[in-house]
Simulated scan of single mutants.
Amino acid sequence: MKSTWIALLEAKYKNLKAPNYSFVLDEIGKNPYAKVVEDIRRGFSINEDTDENTDISFGYVLFLAPGRDFLLRISMIAPYAFLAKIKERGSTSQPIVRENTQDAMELDVLKILESHGISMFDEKSLKIGVPDSGKDSKSLYQWMFVDEEIPPWS
């Protein structure tokens, strides 16, 4: 599976030893997930939270119900995402996947994402190091979403 991740990453970054982030502005200009956001907006309130200077993903804050705010990140690398509940002080829950929730609203969001061909990451997958080791190795979370060492659920 790591060879698949490396191929996806190299297609965007060109070189994992000296990554080229120039694709970020192109992806923002293309707005490839506009239809996804439109579908989510039909059932929930959503605000964009993408920082073109640090993000490698489109960030959104979803307001599913009073006191139930969620962070959604959809990668600019490939159609992968993670969804996490926002806790007090800005930290989040571990990423939500179909297997670890029974909540109807969370499942509704997952269903919308999946209907657009977007696959969800769980925490274990996001911790995978690519490449395997060395100074160029980073977690899939860093390569796919935000280049920060500590994910928001840590």
Rank of each mutant, 00 (worst) to 15 (best):
M1V: 14
M1Q: 05
A7K: 12
A11K: 10
K12R: 15
Y13V: 03
Y13E: 01
K14Y: 04
K14P: 11
K17T: 13
K17I: 07
A18D: 09
Y21T: 10
F23A: 09
V24F: 00
L25M: 10
L25Q: 08
E27Q: 07
G29E: 03
K30I: 12
N31L: 05
Y33G: 09
K35R: 10
K35H: 10
V36N: 14
V36C: 08
E38K: 14
D39N: 15
I40Y: 01
R42N: 08
G43W: 12
S45K: 05
S45W: 11
I46A: 07
E48N: 08
D49H: 06
D51L: 15
E52A: 13
E52H: 00
T54R: 15
T54A: 09
D55A: 12
S57H: 11
Y60G: 00
V61R: 15
L62Q: 01
L62I: 02
L62H: 02
F63D: 10
L64W: 02
A65D: 10
P66Q: 15
P66L: 14
G67Y: 13
G67Q: 14
G67D: 06
R68I: 03
D69A: 13
D69F: 11
F70K: 11
I74Q: 11
I74M: 05
M76Q: 09
M76K: 00
I77N: 05
I77A: 08
I77F: 04
P79W: 00
A81Y: 00
L83I: 05
I86M: 02
I86K: 03
R89D: 08
G90S: 04
G90V: 01
G90Y: 02
S91H: 12
S91A: 08
S91E: 10
S91G: 15
T92C: 03
S93Q: 03
Q94S: 10
P95G: 04
R98D: 05
N100Q: 02
T101S: 08
D103Q: 15
D103H: 13
D103I: 06
A104H: 07
A104N: 07
E106T: 08
D108V: 13
V109Q: 03
L110M: 05
I112M: 08
L113I: 03
L113G: 10
I118P: 06
S119C: 09
M120I: 06
M120A: 11
F121P: 12
F121V: 12
K124T: 06
L126T: 01
L126M: 04
K127N: 13
P131F: 01
D132L: 08
S133I: 03
G134R: 07
K135I: 04
D136Q: 09
S137Q: 05
S139I: 02
L140A: 06
L140H: 01
L140V: 00
Y141L: 07
W143S: 02
F145M: 10
D147E: 11
D147S: 08
I150N: 01
P151Q: 02
P152M: 04
P152A: 04
W153T: 01
W153H: 03
S154M: 06
S154P: 07
